[in-house]
C-alpha cells in the first residue's frame, strides 16, 4: 500500500536579489533535501526553529509552491506531473490549518461561508446541500449549526481553530497539514483542539503532518518525527525512539531547552551558544557545526548525509560520540 503522502529529496530554493544596485543575487535554500513517507492514520511531526524550513515544506506539501527539485507523491501520484483536473483532484486531498487563528479566517465572511468555500470551489452542489455539509462539519468540531451565520471575530482563538479544522476537512481530504495549530492557544484550549484533531484523524483515517516547535505537544501525538535545521533534516525516525534517546546534538539541545513541569522529563540543559545563522548564509559543511558542542574540523568542510544509525536517520559525522553523552 503506497503511503498517503511521500516526499523524495525535496528542495526549494529562492533567489534573493542582492543588496544595492549591483549586488549579486544569492540563493536562499529554504528546504535542502527533505524526504519522508507517511501512511494514513499516522502522524508525522516536523520540528525545528525559525528558518528551518518547516513552513516551506508545508507549502510544498499543499502544492502552493512547486519544489525546485525533488518530488511529492499524493497516494502514489506526482501532482506536478499531471495537469488540470487530475492535479486539482489531488490538491483536494491535501488540506491545511494554520498557526494564527486570528489571521486564517476571512474577517468579512460568515463562518458558514468560510467552511463551505472548498465545496463551492470544487463541487457542484446546490446551496441547501452545501449548507448542510457545513453544518455537519461544524458539529463535528464541537460548534453548533447556529454558528453558521456568525462572523469570526465573535469567536475565541480555540473556536476559530476549530472552524479552520472544519474548513480543512469538509472535502474529506486524505492528508492534513497542521502548521503550528495550537501554538497560539492557551493550554486548556490546546488540549481541546488536540483532542478534536486526534478524534477526527481516527475517524477519517487522516495522515497528519504536524508542524510544531513545542516538543511537549509533539511527544504526545507524533508517531514519527523529523527534526530540521536551516533547511536540512538532521534527525528522523520513530518518535518514541528519538525522544527516549536523541542522537543529533541539535535534537538534544532542543529537548534540553524545552521546559518541563515534571522533573523526570527534564533533560540536561545543553547550552547552545550563539544565534541561529542566517539562512542566506549557512555555515559551510554541517549547518549546525557553529553551535555544536562536539564539533571537529571535519564538520566545517563536509556536510553529513542522513544515515541510518541507532534505529533512526541522523545526519552527523560523530553520531556515536553524541549518542554516548
Amino acid at each position: 500500500m503506497s503511503a498517503a503522502i511521500e516526499g523524495r529529496d525535496l528542495k526549494r530554493y529562492y533567489t534573493v536579489k542582492g543588496s544595492g544596485f549591483f549586488g549579486k543575487p544569492s540563493t536562499l535554500k529554504a528546504v535542502d533535501g527533505a524526504s519522508f513517507s507517511l501512511e494514513s492514520g499516522k502522524t508525522l511531526a516536523i520540528v525545528g526553529e525559525s528558518g528551518c524550513g518547516k513552513s516551506t515544506l508545508a507549502r510544498l506539501a499543499t502544492m502552493i509552491e512547486k519544489p525546485t527539485s525533488g518530488n511529492i507523491f499524493i497516494s502514489g501520484t506526482d501532482p506536478h506531473a499531471n495537469a488540470g483536473a487530475e492535479k486539482s483532484r489531488l490538491r483536494q486531498d491535501v488540506q491545511m490549518i494554520f498557526q494564527d487563528p486570528y489571521g486564517s479566517l476571512n474577517p468579512r465572511k460568515k463562518v458558514g461561508t468560510i467552511v463551505e468555500e472548498p465545496v463551492v470551489i470544487n463541487r457542484n452542489l446546490p446551496a441547501a446541500e452545501r449548507r448542510e455539509l457545513a453544518e455537519v462539519m461544524l458539529s463535528k468540531v464541537g460548534l453548533r449549526p447556529e454558528h453558521y451565520d456568525r462572523y469570526p471575530h465573535m469567536f475565541s482563538g480555540g473556536q476559530r481553530q476549530r472552524i479552520a479544522i472544519a474548513r480543512a476537512l469538509v472535502l474529506q481530504p486524505k492528508i492534513l497539514i497542521a502548521d503550528e495549530p495550537v501554538s497560539a492557544l492557551d493550554i486548556s484550549i490546546q488540549a481541546q483542539v488536540l483532542n478534536i484533531l486526534m478524534d477526527l484523524q481516527e475517524e477519517m483515517n487522516l495522515a497528519l503532518v504536524f508542524i510544531s516547535h513545542d516538543l511537549s505537544v509533539v511527544r504526545r501525538i507524533a508517531d514519527q518525527i523529523m527534526v530540521m535545521y536551516l533547511g536540512r533534516v538532521v534527525e528522523q525516525g520513530d518518535a518514541k525512539t528519538i525522544f527516549a534517546n536523541p542522537c543529533h546534538p541539535y535534537t538534544q539541545a532542543l529537548l534540553g531547552a524545552t521546559p518541563a513541569v515534571d522533573p523526570k522529563l527534564r533533560r540536561e540543559r545543553v547550552k547552545l551558544t550563539g544565534e541561529l545563522p542566517s539562512p542566506l548564509n549557512p555555515p559551510a559543511g554541517c549547518a549546525f557545526h557553529t553551535r555544536c558542542r562536539f564539533v571537529q574540523d571535519f564538520c566545517s568542510t563536509t556536510a553529513p548525509g542522513l544515515e541510518m544509525k541507532f534505529e533512526r536517520q541522523v545526519a552527523c559525522h560523530y553520531a556515536e560520540v553524541a549518542m554516548k553523552s
Binding site: I187, S188, Q190, A191, Q192, L194, N195, M198, D199, S216, V217, R219, R220, I221, A260, V261, D262, L265
Partner: peptide, 16 residues
Amino acid sequence: NALPERSLGLDRLPTI
C-alpha cells in the same frame, strides 16, 4: 492535568 506532558499514557488529553 491538561498539560500534554501529563497525559502521556492516556488516549485523550483531559480538558476543562
